[in-house]
Write a protein that binds this DNA or RNA. Structure first.
Lengths: 325, 325
DNA sequence: TCAAAAGTGTTATCCTTACACCCATGT
DNA sequence: ACATGGGTGTAAGGATAACACTTTTGA
């Protein structure tokens, strides 16, 4: 039922927070691996902890001092060749990726917790931030490079249901296809296969090595951690719409604009103010506290809090953002 | 990053098909473990196969002769105590659960493939089949037993965000809450914790042993395989609504009624004929072949086929069944 | 008084639900 | 002719998307 040929199981955690307007990811930038950041990870020891989740909470607490609230399993990655560095022929590592949400621990600014620190996640995925409109990097580098990739024949590749052109169209919203902010992992995988991220070259992908002179996109991470982060972002963007997870990232009281900014930070797109407010109102996810905040600069804003009761009232309480929020 | 204390990784597959009106699950009923059925499972050998998915396809093919089409990772289960039998203190097994869809291989009837065979999945979850109305077992046994469980205090349990009463209301649609056909795994977990499934007693749960005289619900499975099946059903019921996975279970040509019966089989509820047809029409998921089938008994039915092009046209092509289909 | 952000009102359109009736075949 | 399942039309209600304007504060 299993093999004992040196398989190890590690838990990797994408620990997400939002600071002001920026989504942040907790990274441990170990100096032994150059400037590259990595996700916090730890072993799974079945003798100490009965479940993955308990084990995860334990070592995150020990390593960073953070008590995470919401935790969710993302995916288990077992690809040979996408965890080890080139030439490394140590034991095979299976990594179980987790998503965890925490409120920003420090009053303001990016906190440093136990050797790890929060970093804005769009450094790793600059093409995913559409809040100020379509990112320039798309038309300046990504799409031209991918167009070239799509034009070349796809030999030596696993058979896929869709051809390169179709994948490009669907994932990157080329040619009348809409941009779908949830397809974060699909886009990252296309870039990996096209050899346009540093990880692909490190893993020794043929397609990547052939294109060694081309630029690489976004900051890279250790092992397959950027892939896990892409999965985390995709999951969170999707989950927002049918579960009230956004409130795991808000403080207990907030203004509607703060809520909107947080949702925009995560989903990476700009939302329509009036429609967003009506949406929030209709879903009955929040209630006014009666307080007024005057720190916002203009007219003072009413404060709200999450109505925990909705979880018991409605089957899928989330912010079902349509195409215009 | 990992431990070497005898951890093994196994892949378990929920291989689903639909035969006429019944959803079927491939089970291997090993005679060494009494009458209990189990899901097919196999080892993951990183030296032979680069990814889990490739490994899975390989041993499913070898074990059952089936070439599975659609494959999707479900969840990785690592709970100590939910895989081993009581007294068993062998190595800890981490099982990566997969969902696979296949078309019924035999023309009709349940096929036997390489020692394994298909069984109707509602044997294991009789409370999940609402096609002929609300299942009797709910009011006759499940809800009374769970009401009693909810009334007792929850000590010695991991702290949960919701109390027993709220979980019962939300998962089982008690007391004005709607029944949500996607909450298959949540319901199974409630029954497990309440000690009302055989697996809980086998695992030596305190709550379960105290209630040894009460009946157990549904047919049980080996290890934690019923939990994996519950996860598979839940995922498939959800996925139907935004991806055209249903066509992985249909033959290449079918009538609209056959399509409706298949969707009903999976989602476990009865759908409104006219609305279902309009839905299918609007989504442009199918096109008429021009053929007519006269085998249905009444008026001959037009045949349709899946329009593969929709995948390239629309972002989320699925049957977005509302509350009335 | 002006900048900056909060907050509101209204309409066209589409999708969902719900309703009841007619059609083509085999026996 | 009648049973059986196939197939259709239409209207009410609600949600979404798109539009521009008023209000309240601090500087």
């Amino acid at each position: 039922m299993g093999l004992r040929t040196g398989i190890e199981i590690g838990l990797s955690a994408a620990i997400v927070s939002v600071d002001k307007d920026d989504p942040q990811i907790l990274v441990a930038s170990d100096k032994t691996d150059g400037p590259r950041a990595g996700l916090p990870f730890g072993p799974f020891d079945p003798l100490t902890h009965h479940t993955f989740e308990i084990g995860l909470r334990a070592w995150v607490k020990a390593q960073t001092g953070l008590a995470v609230g919401y935790v969710e399993q993302l995916y288990t990655f077992g690809d040979r060749g996408r965890h080890a560095r080139p030439g490394d022929s140590g034991p095979h590592v299976v990594s179980v990726g987790y998503l965890a949400l925490v409120r920003m621990p420090d009053p303001d600014g990016v906190a440093a917790v136990g050797g790890a620190g929060f970093e804005p996640w769009y450094r790793f995925f600059p093409w995913e931030d559409w809040r100020a409109g379509r990112p320039e990097i798309l038309d300046l580098s990504i799409l031209p490079l991918l167009a070239e990739w799509a034009a070349r024949p796809a030999h030596d590749e696993p058979v896929r249901p869709l051809g390169r052109r179709e994948r490009l169209r669907l994932c990157f919203g080329v040619d009348r296809s809409p941009w779908d902010e949830e397809k974060v992992i699909d886009r990252y995988e296309v870039l990996y296969e096209a050899g346009l991220v540093e990880e692909a070259r490190r893993d020794g992908r043929k397609a990547a090595l052939e294109r060694a002179k081309l630029p690489v996109l976004g900051e890279s991470m250790r092992f397959d951690h950027r892939r896990i982060l892409a999965t985390a972002i995709a999951r969170l963007r999707a989950k927002l719409k049918y579960r009230p997870v956004i409130f795991e990232l808000m403080s207990s009281e907030f203004t509607l604009t703060e809520l909107q900014r947080t949702v925009e930070a995560i989903s990476g797109r700009h939302l329509h103010k009036q429609n967003f407010r009506r949406l929030v109102e209709n879903t009955e996810l929040v209630e006014p506290t009666g307080e007024i905040s005057t720190v916002t600069g203009g007219r003072p804003a009413a404060m709200f809090r999450f109505r925990r009761e909705v979880v018991q009232e409605r089957p899928a309480p989330g912010l079902r953002l349509g195409s215009r929020g």
